[in-house]
Nucleic acid binder design. Sequence first.
DNA 1: CATGAATGAGAGTTCATTCAT
DNA 2: AATGAATGAACTCTCATTCAT
Lengths: 219, 219, 219, 219
Amino acid sequence: MIDVIVRSPVPTSKGRRTRAALLQAGREAFEEHGYDAVRIDDVCRRARVSHGTFYTYFDSKEALFGEVAEAVVGEMFAASVVGAAAPDDPYARIEAANRLYLRAWAANSRLVRMLEQAATADGRFGRLLLELREVFVRRGADGLRRLQEQGLADPSLDPRLTAVMLGGMVEHFAHVWLDLGEELGEESGEEAAVDHLTRLWARAIGLTPTSIPATEEGA
Amino acid sequence: MIDVIVRSPVPTSKGRRTRAALLQAGREAFEEHGYDAVRIDDVCRRARVSHGTFYTYFDSKEALFGEVAEAVVGEMFAASVVGAAAPDDPYARIEAANRLYLRAWAANSRLVRMLEQAATADGRFGRLLLELREVFVRRGADGLRRLQEQGLADPSLDPRLTAVMLGGMVEHFAHVWLDLGEELGEESGEEAAVDHLTRLWARAIGLTPTSIPATEEGA
Amino acid sequence: MIDVIVRSPVPTSKGRRTRAALLQAGREAFEEHGYDAVRIDDVCRRARVSHGTFYTYFDSKEALFGEVAEAVVGEMFAASVVGAAAPDDPYARIEAANRLYLRAWAANSRLVRMLEQAATADGRFGRLLLELREVFVRRGADGLRRLQEQGLADPSLDPRLTAVMLGGMVEHFAHVWLDLGEELGEESGEEAAVDHLTRLWARAIGLTPTSIPATEEGA
Amino acid sequence: MIDVIVRSPVPTSKGRRTRAALLQAGREAFEEHGYDAVRIDDVCRRARVSHGTFYTYFDSKEALFGEVAEAVVGEMFAASVVGAAAPDDPYARIEAANRLYLRAWAANSRLVRMLEQAATADGRFGRLLLELREVFVRRGADGLRRLQEQGLADPSLDPRLTAVMLGGMVEHFAHVWLDLGEELGEESGEEAAVDHLTRLWARAIGLTPTSIPATEEGA
DNA sequence: CATGAATGAGAGTTCATTCAT
DNA sequence: AATGAATGAACTCTCATTCAT
């Protein structure tokens, strides 16, 4: 074959719908069963489309996963923006960020594990994962640096290293959360989690104690 | 035929060596390529035996992974015992534990990821993972509880929840450590990592400041 | 993945042709080589399809054999109906039935042996075989009972037991017929066989001698 | 290899015992599971011998089956000899023969089926089967011929063809006997079977009625 | 002689991908 | 665009047979 196959640049609305259905079906399937266990057939059945059609929209299973992964990473970027409503109080800022982070990671925990799995086979996914974490790390590091400059946090901490560690605490907790949920008193839930994460985080960086609530919940 | 297959209960030394070779080869293969990507043939080639031989010693890939996983978990249990040499000083104790934990998790990071992957398909591995983490969590929680009773740590923290979070910080850091190593100044390495982890941990639980070195490294 | 696989309920005509080709190829292969000796690949080669295609239509070799067996049994049922053209004369009736039975069993002798072989491994085939024989046995028993009621056959014979025995004579003869054919004077063939079977059968049940031709062939 | 391997011509008594154990184990295994389903391992385990040892005594699975088959055929030959105690009365002679034949075939029904199965793959077993049946057929044919010469049986019957048919009746009945036993009133058992077979056989060949008991059992 | 570890051809089955309709 | 039949590489697992000990 010498011809280059060019996907129609102006897809019909039906085509766009089919594509979206496959993407959504793939995401669900990956979340439920893991990368390797998902067969193209499963995705097609879920999207109510024949096998053949799949290849009209995606070159391979890997390509599908790539798009799913990018979509998820995009969502997580979006979800992590604390935004204009950020409180002035440093402790409250940390709390708000932790709540967002916890939700973002928990919601996509499975896909992130998948990314780790896929990363062993394809460096591209490793890079995506790095980018994803980088966003969170940088945000944490920047925040810490600002507090250090304001004299509100321990200046001897390496901002980046600290951000990796504390950010990892949140990410990892999000991961084990649901699995261990019951044993932690499931229904106390997010509030207790965010409270603890925030107190640990704030104190860890030496946030000037005045703003730390002494016993917010009595835990 | 439905007869029960009974493996020879008294294996010869040659048999034991072959079995060990397969186990070792499997461990390496899993670490390098991930559970799903490993082919029985890869393992056999690495162990320099024919694939028929594999089935003399293991019923299936899953069975092999099961033994590898148990061996790894066993090693991690063993490696995590702080032992009699534990210092009296609380901060030094935390530091010693963190060093051990960091090493244990880092050394087996890949296999643990594998366990997570395998857990999706077989609950048995999920349970193994839970057991593994439970050991570390319990140790952390017990330590914190003791400090709280001695009035050396914030009594309002939930010991278990806190241990899950801070233990997760160490586990997760061990995981991203090598991957992100370069960007963290790789060669500073373990010392800086343990120092930071310990300072964050100690301060997070409100360990009475007197014993916390103010600026050990100035990072 | 555990989803139920649903075969397309509306197969295309091409699909139907492929399926039929596999069924036919399977039947021939089973007849020629026996159940265990048949490889899926043999069937596929004969049907000129790849072995992957086989699994589009059948779940396993056993499933294929199941369909072949049911088709054969169905044919034998159909072939064994004496029908409206049945003569009034008891002896002629027996003769007509024996001719049909002999043909039916001889035509499918190999497949029936296969069923016996398969029955050792899967009770389902044993049941099919029982059903098949039951049809012939019942017919023979009913016929005998009628003759007994009319005073034309020995009333002391157990109709069912007798039918099993005499029916077995025909079935078994059909089986050894081709193998021993040469030694029996092959080309005399069916006529001599039917003649002898009928005379033996009729006299065995004590059919009133008047209607038995004394020396039809002089054999 | 140019050397010819010669089995020790003077086996030790231990060797003879091992060989016999394998033969017996093989026979049982074949009877229980069928030719293809039997693995050398099953036979060895049953004989409490290692795999390797098997090949000290037999060249292959087929060789083992060959010996088993020959042993069985030999036994059946031996068992079928009516012997000196044969009664003078023709009907009683037929009855005695039928009892022996029924027992011989029933006892080895499974192995004979196996032979049929094996015959498709190896002509040697086909020949063995032919020989086996030939013995019974010849005996039946000879008996009939004698009766015909004495004016006691229908002279128009072909002795050989008739013997094949009636002998087949006995063989086939022996085969289905156990399977259908229950439905035939199992416990009446052998007596009723032999009685019916004999009456059918005797009358089929036109044995002069005087000697046929009218209603021996009333069936 | 006996052992059982090792071998490897070969069988069944799965599934991503292609392509005629 | 959509379909689904067809393909075949790849993989797991079995088991008759060999051979060093």
